[in-house]
Simulated scan of single mutants.
Amino acid sequence: MMVRRILLSLCVVLLFSAIGHTQDFHYSQFSNAPLQLNPGLTGVFAGETRVAASYRSQWNQVPVAYKTFTATADHKYTCGRPGPGFFASGIALNYDQAGASRLSMAQVNLYGSYTYPLNDQAFLTGGLTFGLGQRAFDTDDLRFDRQFDVLVGRYDANLSSNETFANQSHIFMDAGLGINFRWQELQSGSLIDLLEDRSKLDVGIGIHHLNRPDMSFIEDEKVNLPIRWSPYATGTIQVGDPLDVQLAMMAQFQNTYRQYLGTAGLKLHLNRDPGQQWSVLLGVGYRFDEFGDAWYPALEINYHEILSASLSYDINISDFNIATNRRGGLELNVRYLIKKVCPLPNFKFCPLI
């Protein structure tokens, strides 16, 4: 019983450590995971429907690799609406797995938002999210003191651990909200975007885990997930006919944890002719907290402002680089936009770029 209590306490400590230090799963390319960043970004894109997927594989050089996958879809309800604003809804599927215990989190989130145009170039969006998730862990690859054979002086996986756990999974509900302000150079009355006015700015904040869901696996003991605040600012500055500068900053505050990210990139428009639009973005980012963390180069290819694919790789600079040999995490993002014209007489131009 004493060993079991120690192990259970250790699980709580490790779980709390994950909540208090690594916090929620995250993406280096946070601009390409908008629903994870802020529910207020639901429907903030050029088109009617957006489908996206993100994958991250971190610390493969050590035996406790972290893997994260997200798939999202959101849609704007603009056709046939008489007013200037519009509603949007979305859904996100998240899966995250970490460590030898395969501590996992599977989650389904629903999103809703409303965008109100302040004028032809400025828009304010408020969004909500509600989800259902499950946390779980597996003991198959864990080692316990009773599996240490004192006669031969080594660990023996065939020995029973004699340990049982009342709960190895936990279901929780989650809720959040956010607000986003968009300014763009392109005016909403323009019917065709020839990529001549590309400057834009998004500023907002996402507030996650408003209900502070319980993450504990132990009965009669609660470990509440702290509220996470995610302020950010992303912008595109058109500096020439074919060239843009893209800048983005984001911070995350959760309990005592602080994380900051900054990215900068150059986007070259290789072809701006309608139906043949191509662009390439080369960027670099830096993520830091109290331990340092990582910097990462990034490459993004965009076709016709509809299909984009991006790749980045974290280069670890924290003290953990002794174990990782500076190899952090590979991250992939894919996004596809569906653009359509509303049938007459209900035609309504999509105002956001």
Rank of each mutant, 00 (worst) to 15 (best):
Y155C: 03
D193E: 07
A309E: 04
D202R: 00
F30R: 00
F130I: 13
S199K: 07
A136G: 11
L128N: 07
Q147S: 08
N325I: 02
Q259H: 12
D193L: 01
T139W: 01
T256L: 10
S199W: 01
I322T: 12
I6E: 15
S160R: 10
R146L: 15
N119K: 00
I315K: 11
G47E: 00
F86K: 00
V12M: 10
E221D: 13
G85A: 03
M249F: 13
E300Y: 03
G178K: 01
I237H: 11
A298N: 07
Y286Q: 15
G85E: 01
D273H: 08
T70R: 10
Q168E: 08
T22H: 03
F181A: 05
Y257L: 13
P226T: 07
A92G: 15
R258W: 06
K200A: 03
G43C: 01
I306N: 12
V152Y: 12
H208L: 11
Q246E: 15
F291P: 04
A264S: 11
T129L: 12
S54I: 04
P242A: 13
Y27D: 03
G178V: 00
Y313G: 05
G47N: 05
S199E: 09
Y114E: 02
L37M: 12
F137N: 02
V64T: 11
L270A: 15
P226V: 06
L307Y: 13
V280N: 09
H21T: 13
P82V: 07
Y111Q: 05
S318D: 10
N167K: 12
F165N: 12
Y116F: 10
L110C: 07
Y260Q: 15
N38Q: 10
H209C: 06
V341P: 00
G99E: 07
Y303F: 13
G133T: 05
L270H: 12
V150L: 13
K267L: 10
Y286W: 09
I218P: 02
R198C: 07
R146V: 04
L151R: 14
D96F: 03
L225K: 06
L15N: 06
A53Q: 08
V239R: 09
I353V: 10
F253P: 03
Q23G: 13
S57V: 11
